[in-house]
Amino acid sequence: MSDSGDTDLGFVRFGDTGLQSSELQFGTWRFGKETEAGNLEIGEKRAKELLDAYADAGGRYVDTADIYGGGDSEVWIGDWLSDRDRERYTVASKIFWQTREGDPNSRGTNRKNVRDRIDGILDRLGTDYVDVLYIHRWDDQTPTRELMRTLTGLVEDGKVHYLGASTLRPDAWKVAQANQLARDEGLEPFSVLQPRYNLVDREIEGDYLEFARSEGLAVCPWSPLAQGFLTGKYDREDGLTGESRASESTRWEQNYLTDENFDLHDELDAVAGEVGASPAQVALAWLCHRDGVTAPIVGARTVDQLEENLAAAAIDLSEDQVQRLTEAKEGPYAGL
């Protein structure tokens, strides 16, 4: 947790690397994203206001991907960085999803696609390198040796500093296999994992987190607020039967608007009342207290939301409060 005051974010070690990460990373997946009505969730002006607010709070780690906003996210970040000291910021991007219709080679992590995509990323960001390059998902069509040799080449060329895998629990063994191959053949291994993890989505507890700890990998979770469920904007009655239900997808409803999750939210609300914070802040603070978690990735639509989320770094939960939250949802790993 932060030891630099109520407003400035502190730094945490990035796994077993020599890199330091902001204790809360800023995610930009909403930059340039169009709603179903064709409107932008976050346009360029607000994107830069959010980046300013993050930097003003001491934040130095910006997470993006080459598909966010069709590339606009990287362009806006690059333009924002052009007026700042690039070396003071850690920038991460990702590659995987198809970018050219009808071209199967523009998807995945084959050598041709990776080498093409990194050049596009650097061009849009207006920089010579990215600090962290993630594979956005695991590509079963590309041999592991081809992937690791290609990524190692990017590190050797100075285009990338560290390698990461944004992946779900079932693919952890593939990362383990890739890192073993890297060790055996003198290649660059993955240094960081980016899984989904929050008070509701607990699937990485157990073997996934144990693997990350044993390998010295940083763990930087996405969706720390369970796609908005943990912010407190849904209540048990309206969330299950009211207008808010009609505005969400059936899959989202089935995943989050359940009695079990609302029972957990009751405990979250109770702890929030005890520490004088919002449910979202406590949910983020819980993640920051979890053994094996390096730095959650937070996002926001407005500056006020972002400032509220960043204030979670200053919340000090007791061991009892952490345990109560951890045990509030039953599951195979709920007691960890």
Rank of each mutant, 00 (worst) to 15 (best):
R60N: 10
S249D: 12
S278C: 06
N39E: 15
L240F: 07
I77N: 08
D3G: 13
G15T: 04
T302E: 01
Q227H: 11
D235I: 01
L125I: 06
E237L: 12
A311V: 03
T152S: 15
L19I: 11
P296Y: 07
T28P: 01
Y68G: 09
G228H: 08
Q180I: 05
Q194R: 10
V91C: 03
E210K: 13
H161F: 10
F211P: 02
T231M: 05
N110E: 06
L317I: 06
P224V: 04
V275E: 03
I77Q: 08
L336F: 12
D320P: 00
L209E: 01
N261W: 03
E248H: 15
R117I: 06
T127K: 01
G108A: 04
Q323A: 14
G232A: 02
L264R: 09
A328F: 04
A37L: 09
S22L: 07
E146Q: 13
A212Q: 03
E205C: 04
L40E: 12
D263V: 10
V275C: 11
D72H: 14
D304E: 15
I95Y: 07
D320G: 10
N255D: 09
Y129E: 09
A280Y: 07
G43Q: 06
R117C: 11
E185Q: 14
G5E: 08
G299W: 00
E253D: 10
T64M: 08
Q98H: 07
R213E: 14
A300N: 02
A176T: 12
Q321A: 12
F229M: 08
L81M: 13
T150Q: 09
D207I: 10
P170C: 05
N105K: 14
D316K: 14
L122Y: 05
A178K: 07
V62F: 15
N113C: 05
